[in-house]
Structure formats: C-alpha cells, structure tokens
C-alpha cells in the first residue's frame, strides 16, 4: 500500500516536474519568437532609415547661382532661352534629346520655329529634360543634356541643339553614352569644339543642373515629351483642337500676336537664328 502510495507520489512529482519543464520550454520558445520578430523589425527599420539617409545625401543639391550655364533664365535658371525676349509670343518646349517623338517634332518644325524667331514673332524657352535614360536605361539623355548646357554656357546652344536632333540615334541605341560622339557632332557648330567644351562634356560639368531640370519637369505634371506650349497653351499635337502643322503654327502665332509688334532683330542676328550653324564669315 505504502509502496503504491509512494510510487503515485513519485509520479505526480515527475508529472509536476515535466509540466514545469514544458512551461519553461514554452516560455523560452515564446521569448525566442518575440526576439526573432524584434530582430526582423529592427533589420527592416535600420535598412530603411539608412537607405533614406544615403539616398538623400546622394541626390545632388543644386545651386542656381553657381551651377547653371550662363544665360539661362527662370527662377532657378533651368530654362534656356533662344530668340529675342522682346518677341510677343513664347514657345515653351520640353524636350529630351533621346526622345524619338522630339526628334520627329524637330524634323518637322525646327525650320519654321527658327524663321518665326528670326522674324521676331516668337522666342523659345527650352527645358532640356533627360528621363529617357530611366525608361530605356543608359546615360545618353543626360550626357547630351549636359553637352547642350556646355554649349549654352558659351552661347552656342541653338546651333548644337539643331545638330544633335539632326543626328539623333535610335531611341534604343544609347549612342550618346559615348561622350566622344557628342564631341564629334560639336565640330559641326562653328567655334564650339574647344578644349574647354570637351572637358565640360567629359566631366559632366552641368550634371547637377541637368538633374534639377529633370526634377522640375517631374513636378510639372507634364508627363511626356515633346510638350510644346504656345503662350502657356498646349500646342502639340493639337492647339485648341486643331492639329499642328507648319502652316497652322504660323497661323496660331500670327493670331496670338495680333495687334502686337514683333521684336526688332538685326539682319545678322536674324540670319543666325534662321541657320545657326552657318559659318560666321558668311553673316
């Protein structure tokens, strides 16, 4: 009897011990589980915080006073103006040098636009954006935008802009990732290809400005290029419901300029606007 009792007592003691051990195990298991969840969340929070800080420091701050090419206008000097500012109408152009639609716009309209500028009817505000590199990968847009900024810095944007569009590579061909191709094309613009220009192109001297122009476009709400505005109203592909054509563009400008005097432009300046890359001796 007593033996039986003692064995029962032993068993209950063993059971109690087992229960305690099980409870202890469950507890450590739970703690470990919370430890893991905590570690997971910590890894994520640390990664995100460090990431945001790193990316913040990597985005170049842009200083309009020192980093914009000479002759640029607007509050942050992000606009390249061509033509006489006294011209009554403004054509605002957002273009990516790698964008094929911009290439076809330039092919169809650059002669007319140059003539309208030469007649003192319009001046053009260029926003040289560079987002095709994001969509198609590469660096041709940014390299080309920096190169036209280098040209703008020495007053030769207009001619170089026209040369680049006339020689635009296929969208999927990132030819201008090779900066030497941009320098070779600069030889078609009289007086542009200097050692200063070449180092400006090779060193991406206006990189911060190029990024700032693109950022400005990102926030503009315009989503595609070319975006063409005539006095603030979209003119591409249609203007007030009418399809763009060279004849219509001239008609629209004349209608907008009704009762206003075109800017007076000297014959030599006028000739330079019509064909910006004619050798200067001819003018």
């Amino acid at each position: 009897m007593s033996q039986k009792n003692s064995s029962e007592a032993k068993r209950t003691a063993r059971e109690r011990m087992q229960e305690e051990r099980a409870a202890q195990e469950a507890k450590t298991k739970r703690l470990r589980k919370f430890g893991i969840i905590g570690t997971v969340l910590a890894v994520i929070v640390v990664a995100v915080v460090i990431g945001v800080l790193v990316q913040n420091s990597r985005t170049s701050s842009y200083d309009a006073a020192t980093q914009a090419p000479a002759g640029t206008i607007g509050t942050n000097k992000l606009i390249i103006p061509v033509g006489s500012s006294a011209a009554p109408s403004t054509l605002t152009v957002y273009e990516d040098l790698r964008c094929p639609a911009c290439g076809s716009y330039e092919k169809s309209f650059h002669t007319t636009v140059n003539q309208l500028m030469a007649q003192g009817k319009i001046h053009v505000n260029y926003h040289v954006v560079s987002f095709i590199d994001r969509n198609d990968n590469g660096s041709g847009s940014k390299n080309a935008a920096n190169a036209v900024a280098c040209a703008q810095n020495v007053g030769k944007f207009h001619g170089y802009h026209d040369v680049l569009y006339a020689n635009q590579p296929d969208e999927t061909d990132d030819a201008w990732a090779d900066k030497s191709k941009l320098i070779t094309l600069a030889k078609q613009v009289p007086g542009l290809d200097t050692p200063t220009f070449e180092s400006c192109v090779n060193n991406n001297s206006f990189g911060a400005w190029v990024t700032a122009v693109q950022k400005d476009f990102d926030k503009s709400g315009y989503t595609s290029t070319p975006t063409i505005l005539l006095n603030g109203t979209s003119a591409y592909p249609t203007y007030n419901g009418e399809q763009i054509s060279t004849a219509n563009l001239i008609k629209w400008v004349d209608a907008a300029n009704k009762g206003k005097t075109p800017a007076t432009i000297s014959p030599s300046a006028s000739a330079a606007l019509v064909s910006p890359n004619a050798s200067p001796s001819a003018g």
Binding site: I36, I37, T39, V40, V43, I44, V48, G51, V52
Partner: peptide, 29 residues
C-alpha cells in the same frame, strides 16, 4: 521618403528571406 525607402525595405526583406530569419514574419510583411 517612399521613393528612397521602399527599395531598402525590399532589400531588407530579401536579406531576411535569404538567410531564413523570421521567415513567417518576413513572408507576412
């Protein structure tokens, strides 16, 4: 903050899943 942070959230999840730490939590997130 989202544009800069989301890629690092994705990388953190990648790391956790790669080493298999907190698999259930990482998978739920």
């Amino acid at each position: 903050p989202f544009g800069y942070g989301l890629p690092f959230l994705e990388l953190a999840l990648a790391l956790l899943l790669l080493v298999g730490l907190g698999t259930r939590v990482a998978a739920a997130l």
